[in-house]
Simulated assay, not measured.
Amino acid sequence: MEADLAKEYGVDLWDPAILARPWPGIRTMIFSLLDSPTRLRAVLTRR
């Protein structure tokens, strides 16, 4: 998930500026990774 956030949005989850952001915005970005061809989606949709 961290790698996908960095690749798709340029987000470093350990950056103090990101850590200071409200959680709902980060959560929205995480859920949006499921709509794109990301590593997270591939792992969660394996059969």
Rank of each mutant, 00 (worst) to 15 (best):
I26H: 14
T38Y: 04
V43N: 11
L19R: 08
A20N: 05
L13S: 04
T45I: 01
I18S: 10
M1W: 05
P16A: 03
I26K: 15
A42Y: 04
R21A: 15
P22C: 12
I30A: 09
L19N: 10
I30Q: 14
R39G: 04
I18A: 07
M1E: 06
L33P: 08
R47Y: 09
R21N: 05
R27A: 06
A42K: 04
P24G: 01
P16D: 03
G10Y: 02
L5Q: 06
G25S: 11
V11A: 00
S32K: 09
E8H: 04
T38S: 09
V43I: 09
L44E: 12
R41C: 06
Y9T: 00
V11P: 07
T38G: 10
S32H: 11
S32Q: 14
D4P: 02
I26V: 14
L33A: 02
P24K: 02
I30K: 09
A42M: 06
L5E: 02
G25H: 10
D15N: 02
E2D: 06
F31W: 15
D4W: 00
P37T: 10
D35T: 11
R41K: 07
R27E: 13
A42V: 00
L13D: 02
F31I: 06
E2L: 03
D4Q: 00
E8G: 00
R46V: 10
M29Y: 10
D12G: 12
V43M: 15
L13A: 03
S36H: 14
R41S: 15
M29K: 14
T45S: 05
G10V: 01
I26W: 11
E8V: 01
E2F: 09
R47I: 06
L40Y: 07
W23H: 11
Y9G: 00
L34R: 04
A3C: 10
I26C: 10
V11Y: 01
R41P: 07
R27L: 12
E2G: 14
A6W: 05
R39M: 05
T38P: 13
R21F: 12
L13K: 00
R27I: 15
F31S: 15
R21E: 10
S36L: 15
S36D: 10
L34A: 13
P16S: 02
F31E: 12
A20V: 03
F31M: 08
L40K: 06
R39C: 11
A20C: 02
S36E: 10
A3F: 06
K7R: 13
L33H: 02
P22E: 07
M29A: 11
M29W: 08
I30F: 13
D15C: 04
L19Q: 13
R39N: 08
E2C: 09
G10Q: 03
R21S: 09
L33D: 03
R27P: 15
